[in-house]
Nucleic acid binder design. Structure first.
Lengths: 336, 336
DNA sequence: CGTATTAGCTAATACGTATCAGCAAAGGAC
DNA sequence: GTCCTTTGCTGATACGTATTAGCTAATACG
């Protein structure tokens, strides 16, 4: 059978089955509850099968006013955590016949991404950690939006237990006897990070431990950022005995610098990350961290988004944040 | 200004500018060499600007027979190397107004991905490491395809110097005095990996070093795979003094296992990876590896693909493979 | 001045699908 | 038998754009 030059259309199927194009569309198109005689339906299906018909999703989208595409924007796709979020979105979206267009804001600003996605007529957007509040006000109009780990004020969202994550890290370190505790996190005003930070410090204060401002290091949430931050922490005359990093990349960088400086981990310094990306188990020693269900977070965001596309009025019953879990590994030990 | 319910079309712009829809299309659409009076063009452009017109890419694609979308398939998006390839494709594609739909074959088989991408009417495909040769024969018909690191027999492709990469690793280890050399790589028949392997062993033989079959460990090219492979290598009574891993994930896993087993690296065991992903610099000690320009590889694939979309007859002058480079870090040292 | 040429624009159509109004036939109620 | 309802299908149209044929007016040329 020669490969078709032009792809098979509903017209081709109609001719083959001896019915009208409209009937083919009724059988193969959206509405499964369309009134078509069983015999006709069968005949159309067989013709479609025989010709190898595949619906042209662009044409379908044009008439339905849908592109069946979703945009997902994250700060950094090379961070496995965000990649997992995207993967979660992708899986759910794929099942519903949607495709996802991922983008990150490392090199291209969010506003420009949104411009391009809008030109693509994406039906919806998932935004994670891109500071939706600080976007130009009309950048998101006319599109359904779901936020991840942001305050769900103007748009609905899903959340992980960021506050809880910070608290777990703090309690773990406190439980090991640490009182001299530092925090490494980003300066950027991303709500999820802010919550992790707040949870951490709240737990410290609850335990009567007053944080020191010189032990709060702000740096881009990357490996390089973690290295820099740890370098300045180690340079000070007075060193913390435990550090909570706002994500695992920071922790990996911090660990690297500490080991290179000859520090014993966890002997002289305990380290807790956040996210539990695969990297955490590759480091030596393995990283103690707080596991965030990234994939499930993305999946849940996608489900909410798809739901709202069908019914824009759908207001999610305010969901519990996804549960987080402390994973104790090799970078934390009793205070000396 | 109220946000528009329905998006602005060429008809709206035409009405606003007092011209026909066709004229608007001539001004704003593809052909820049269309004959339109300067004054009219100016007026249309101003109207478009004023109304905030954005072309509907779906509609444009429908009539032009293009979707302005490219599919990219790789084995594993969580491998930063492949992610970089995708990023390279994405950057070039974005500049040309194309969007890319990435997919990996960890959970969904390539054939199913291709099915979905085809339904999306993607204009072209970039395939890296998915074994294009073993796909159903018609899975790629009717679509422009460019392969990465595959033999460019049925489809054009771009390549990195995989053979050279293996050779560089071998010569580095040989130069340090190692003669007891092992290889860890995937069993799957992916051409790029095969070439790295071949380059390695060819250099060994050229140096008069005969490889031992029990030191060739086959395992999935992941961190976990590297750990397993190294475990079996260490379990044997006779240990190699140097190991070349077909990628950095394998090397990371191998390093982890070696360190956990109490081996001194590089004192008792030298380790060379391949790819030079960011992970390589986070490990302690830092990983010696062969740098492959992943991003440029993807970018070049995208350029070739776009070129062929404009001119399907375009046969690339057979390009030199992209240069690779040995990066000596901390996991290799002189043989004991 | 008459004719050929060109510039500048528009009407009409097509891309492949979904959907709606409407038609013919068949059934159902009496 | 008439009248009403339902079933099963089709013709026509629309989605937003690109493109081509063709029209008008202006210009060029002899």
């Amino acid at each position: 059978m020669p490969s078709p030059i032009r792809s098979i259309t509903t017209h081709d199927v109609a001719r083959h089955a001896g019915v009208s194009q409209a009937t083919v569309s009724l059988v193969l198109g959206g509405n499964p509850r369309a009134r078509v005689a069983a015999a006709t339906r069968e005949r159309v299906l067989r013709s479609a099968e025989a010709l190898g018909y595949r619906p042209n999703i662009l044409a379908r989208g044009l008439v339905r006013g849908r592109s069946y595409a979703l945009g997902v924007l994250v700060p950094d796709l090379s961070n496995p955590f965000y990649l997992d979020v995207v993967t979660g979105v992708q899986r759910v979206a794929a099942e519903a016949g949607y495709v996802v267009l991922p983008g990150d804001t490392r090199e291209v600003p969010a506003a420009r991404h949104l411009e391009a996605l809008r030109a693509r007529q994406v039906d919806g957007l998932v935004l994670d950690g891109v500071g939706a509040a600080s976007l130009p006000p009309d950048a998101l109009s006319g599109t359904e939006v779901v936020l991840v780990d942001e305050p769900p004020e103007r748009w609905p969202g899903v959340a992980s237990g960021a506050l809880e994550a910070g608290r777990l890290a703090a309690e773990h370190l406190l439980g090991l006897g640490h009182r001299r505790l530092a925090f490494i996190g980003p300066a950027s005003d991303v709500h999820g990070f802010r919550m992790r930070e707040r949870g951490f410090f709240r737990a410290l204060r609850d335990a009567g431990v007053e944080p020191r401002s010189e032990w709060v290091r702000r740096t881009p949430p990357t490996i390089a950022g973690g290295q820099r931050a740890m370098r300045t922490l180690l340079a000070s005359h007075d060193r913390p005995s435990g550090v909570f990093c706002a994500n695992d990349l920071l922790a990996a960088g911090a660990l690297k610098t500490a080991l290179t400086a000859g520090l014993a981990v966890p002997g002289e310094l305990s380290l807790v990350g956040c996210d539990d990306v695969e990297l955490a188990r590759v480091l030596t020693p393995e990283l103690t961290t707080v596991a965030i269900p990234a994939r499930e977070l993305g999946a849940r965001a996608a489900r909410l988004l798809l739901r709202r596309l069908d019914d824009p009025a759908y207001a999610p019953r305010s969901d519990r944040p996804l549960p987080v879990k402390l994973v104790v590994r090799g970078t934390t030990g009793a205070a000396g």
